[in-house]
Design a protein around this nucleic acid. Structure first.
Lengths: 193, 193
DNA sequence: GTCATTTCTTAACTTAGGTGAACGTTTTTG
DNA sequence: CAAAAACGTTCACCTAAGTTAAGAAATGAC
């Protein structure tokens, strides 16, 4: 389980055994059951997440309806913006599947960063990467129709389409579950005829 | 003109006169005419922008059509992701109005950052702020209808609606110019009846 | 100032997504 | 294991956005 994490980190920086031990000793590995709510609207939180295995989901509740805006899966890192802004969260985070997460709080990060400055370098690289990805995702969403978005998703994250409930996927694509059914039917029809 | 910049910076860090002189001597202030294209699709670039006065616009050309994804106005900073990724740009940047911009390249930033470490701190604050804003903007876009997006824009950036051509605004809202006309007419109708 | 271009609006028609409801299937839960 | 809840699909009907086209208004070029 730890190897998954260290393989990921090695893409950015190299770690000594001592450094690896320091991370493991923080005791930040957590098994989380499907359906667990990690963060609720209105809560303040200091926690950042890193998905080793499984899938977590970000959603708003707007006029009684869930609006899913993100899925994080294996090797995705995520810091809720309530942590950055130190404000109450305006969304929920829940577990789509039984998952193994790395959950860190600001104190732990400060500790590790001060002990091993190269961690801060990695964090900056991660956040730059994330910002660029966020930008292209947003642009792609804006410039596509729902059907095109679904086709893009099939291309870029085919696993999501399999492992996530359709109504959450629909919401993520900005449409209703009935419409997603229709989109899927339409695509099948096109590929047949 | 310089004061606009220093007022902005003072929100994050405080500068000595020496530091201010160092910035001014970089000669990064530029007057840019309306319609000027600052960056083209396919170009590589090292330039970051900061808008002192005026408005610049980011747009893709997808199957012959312009798709506007962002407007940056007074006191907005913007680093194209082709600069971060060191890849050719996949979008254009052009000037919506005659503008005064601060245009810096990676070398200048490196120079200033090494001379005055507190600059790097400011950059990190700016990029965190930007990431959080980007996230909420994306979420808001995803969870709203075009009409709602237009109303939000009227609330949050009323100036944009005035100063930007309607067809660019429509594209920014993810709809066609004709639909934006209709949305506006519909809203007027509601407020009357 | 005039002509050409671009921009904005309106209209009629088409199309895709929203809505409400029904129904079969799967998953939960006691 | 059985009842209940949640989920996915289909349908008929409604609504809002896309499309095509035309014309008015504003802007820019000479």
């Amino acid at each position: 389980m730890h190897d998954l994490l260290f393989d990921f980190i090695s893409k950015y920086i190299s770690l000594t055994d001592e450094e690896k031990d320091a991370i493991v000793s923080l005791d930040i590995f957590h098994s989380v059951k499907k359906g667990t709510i990690l963060l609720k609207e209105g809560q303040k939180s200091q926690e950042s997440y890193f998905v080793l295995k499984g899938c977590i989901r970000v959603y708003y509740v707007k006029s009684g309806e869930e609006k899913t805006t993100a899925f994080y899966t294996e090797m995705d890192a995520f810091t809720p913006h309530c942590v950055i802004n130190k404000t109450p969260s305006d969304y929920f985070i829940s577990c789509v599947e039984d998952s193994i997460l790395l959950i860190s709080n600001s104190d732990m990060e400060a500790e590790i960063n001060s002990k091993f400055p190269k961690f801060e370098i990695m964090c900056r690289m991660l956040s730059e990467e994330l910002l660029a990805k966020q930008q292209t995702d947003f642009d792609e969403f804006k410039t596509s129709s729902p059907e095109q978005r679904y086709l893009n998703l099939l291309q870029n994250r085919p696993d999501l389409v399999q492992r996530v409930p359709q109504h959450q996927l629909a919401s993520y694509l900005g449409i209703k579950p009935q419409s997603l059914s229709r989109v899927r039917a339409r695509i099948l029809e096109k590929n047949k005829g």
